[in-house]
C-alpha cells in the first residue's frame, strides 16, 4: 500500500494525539526530577509579581498633592489596623506559646535564625494547590525546604526558590506533610515515649479562614481530646520542635488509626509578613547521631 508522503512529517507525528499524549506523560515523569518545570514557573511568575509592584508605584506618582495625602492617610490607617490585628494575633500566639512552654518544658527550645519576608502574592492557577509568594530568595539565604512561620506558628515550607523571590507551600496544600505532636497545655510534660504523634497532611482545605487540617496515623487508643494543641516534631528533621500548628477540634476513629481534625492557628489568607527559618533538614548521619544521643 502506498504511503501518503504528506503525513510522514515530524509535525504530523508530534500533532498525533497518541504520540503527543505519550510525550506529555513522559515529560510529566521526567520533568519533576529535573525540576525544569518549577524553574520555568518561577520565571513566569516573577514578571507578574514585579508588574504588581510597578502598578502601585506608577499610580502614586501620577496623583496630585491632595490625592497623595489622602492616599498616604488611607495607607497609614490600613497599616494601623493591620498592625493592631497583627498585635492581637501575636499576643494570642505568645500566650499559647507560653502555655506550651510551661506545660512541656520547651524553654530550652530556641528557634533558628530567621529571615523576615513580605507576602507579595497569594493563590495558584489550579484550585487544588495552596501557595503564596514571598520577596526573599537565595540572595537572602533562603533555600528550598526551609520552614516558614509567623511568630511561632507554622505557615508552610519553601517550595521553589529564585534569587529574590520564593514560593511557599502552605500547610493546607495537599502535598504538605509534617510530623507533629499532640500536647495538652493543661497537664505537665509527658515523657518522650508517651507523646502522641501524628502526620499532618494538607487536604486542600477550602475553608476561607483558619482552615481545617488533618492529622493522620495517630495511634488508636491515644488520649486525644478537643482543645489539645498540635505542635511540630523534630522527628524527621524537616521542622524544628515546637512550632505551633493548631487546636484539636474532632477525632474520628478509622481502621487502624485515629484521624484528628484540627483548626489551624493562623488565618493564612491574610498573612502579610512571615519569617523563613534558616533550618535545614540534617543529613541522615547527623540525624541518627542525634537520635542516639537522645537515647
Amino acid at each position: 500500500m502506498a504511503r501518503n508522503p504528506d503525513k510522514l512529517t515530524l509535525g504530523w507525528l508530534l500533532r498525533h494525539p497518541l504520540v503527543a499524549t505519550c510525550i506529555l506523560l513522559a515529560l510529566t515523569i521526567v520533568l519533576p526530577y529535573l525540576r525544569v518545570g518549577e524553574r520555568l514557573k518561577l520565571l513566569t511568575f516573577l514578571p507578574l509579581a514585579h508588574a504588581a509592584d510597578e502598578v502601585n508605584a506608577t499610580a502614586y506618582e501620577e496623583l496630585s498633592e491632595d490625592e497623595r495625602l489622602r492616599f498616604d492617610l488611607d495607607r497609614e490607617r490600613q497599616e494601623r489596623a493591620r498592625l493592631e490585628a497583627e498585635n492581637a494575633r501575636l499576643i494570642d500566639t505568645l500566650r499559647q506559646n507560653a502555655e506550651l512552654r510551661g506545660a512541656l518544658g520547651f524553654e530550652s527550645v530556641t528557634l533558628p535564625a530567621s529571615v523576615p519576608a513580605q507576602v507579595i502574592f497569594h493563590g495558584d492557577a489550579s484550585g487544588w494547590r495552596h501557595c503564596c509568594w514571598i520577596n526573599r530568595g537565595t540572595d537572602h539565604g533562603v533555600e528550598e525546604g526551609m520552614p516558614v512561620v509567623a511568630g511561632r506558628t507554622l505557615v508552610g515550607r519553601v517550595f521553589m526558590c529564585g534569587s529574590d523571590h520564593a514560593c511557599v507551600q502552605l500547610v493546607t496544600d495537599p502535598g504538605f506533610a509534617a510530623s507533629c505532636l499532640i500536647v495538652d497545655p493543661q497537664t505537665p510534660a509527658l515523657e518522650t515515649d508517651r507523646r502522641v504523634r501524628g502526620v499532618l497532611r494538607g487536604d486542600g482545605s477550602a475553608r476561607p479562614h483558619f482552615p481545617r487540617l488533618e492529622l493522620e496515623d495517630v495511634a488508636v487508643g491515644a488520649e486525644v481530646r478537643e482543645g489539645m494543641h498540635v505542635i511540630t516534631s523534630d522527628y524527621s528533621g524537616q521542622f524544628p520542635l515546637g512550632l505551633y500548628v493548631g487546636v484539636v477540634r474532632e477525632t474520628i476513629p478509622q481502621a487502624g488509626f485515629l484521624q484528628v481534625r484540627l483548626e489551624a492557628g493562623l488565618d493564612l489568607v491574610n498573612l502579610e509578613v512571615v519569617q523563613v527559618l534558616m533550618h535545614k533538614r540534617p543529613e541522615l548521619e547527623k540525624q541518627a547521631l542525634a537520635l542516639l544521643k537522645r537515647k
Binding site: 494525539p17 503527543a20 499524549t21 506529555l24 506523560l25 515529560l27 510529566t28 520533568l31 519533576p32 525544569v36 518545570g37 520555568l40 514557573k41 513566569t44 511568575f45 495558584d124 492557577a125 489550579s126 487544588w128 494547590r129 501557595c131 517550595f159 514560593c167 507551600q169 496544600d173
Partner: peptide, 17 residues
C-alpha cells in the same frame, strides 16, 4: 495553566487533551 500553577507540568495539558 500548568506553567502558572504549582502542580506537575503536563497535568492539565493531558487532561484538556
Amino acid at each position: 495553566r500548568d506553567f502558572l500553577s504549582m502542580g506537575l507540568i503536563g497535568t492539565y495539558g493531558v487532561l484538556y487533551s
